[in-house]
Amino acid sequence: MNSVAAYALRLGDDALVLAQRTGEWIAAAPQLEEDVALGNIALDLLGQARSLLTYAGQAEGEGRDEDALAYLRDERDFTNLQLCELPNGDFAVTMARLLVFSSYQYELYSRLQYGTDPTLAAIAAKAVKEVDYHRDHATQWVLRLGDGTTESHQRMQAAAEHVWPYTDEMFDADDVTRELTEPGVAVDPGQLREPWSSYVGAVLDEATLTFPATRPAVTGGRRGIHTETMGYLLAQMQHLARSHPGAVRW
């Protein structure tokens, strides 16, 4: 797979896997209103995934469409960040994960929309408005839970520390990004760290939370190495499509 296809695929996989995780909250969120909000966020992510996977298939040129890429690949072929596949945990963990990921996506897309690949730039320009809202939603909740009751503060702090080790992977460069950064197709992941830290740090600070000092986890999502829960997630996501190959109506 060429680098452009691989780059579109990893960004699409991030969105697809987090859409699947976020969707697990539907009908289980703390309130009906939050149910709808999380449903909207999951659908935004799914929309981004569809565009990115479709483009990855086109760039690859081997006839795979979005469905083939989403439903007919195995775990080792998925190149999403491990952060995106982390189980939902309690509501605080879900919000901590959304805060760190949507802040990353915001910094990424707001640069990628000026990139030299017109398709990736167009997808990014549409997505940046969506993730801006996701970031705001997560921010609002982190502020309220962090600066809320003793219980909510403790759980929000624990949630931040839980997801933190998986954030370093967002900023790791590899052969794909190194090849594409020079011609301006991709954004150098390393340059996102500083603006990301600045935003997330300010939110944690205002939420009376402590910036976690945890060590980076041993990750490798971009190389197809995933956590134990990934297989279960894929089984649920892919089961129907694999049981009825080629089915187009229900």
């Binding site: 309130q31 009906l32 209103e33 939050e34 709808v36 909000a37 909207n40 939603h137 609002q140 309220r144």
Partner: peptide, 19 residues
Amino acid sequence: LHAPDAPMALRNARDLYTR
């Protein structure tokens, strides 16, 4: 709708009524 405070009410309203 239900919401814990005004800013969250505004955001919930955006999600529920201006989709």
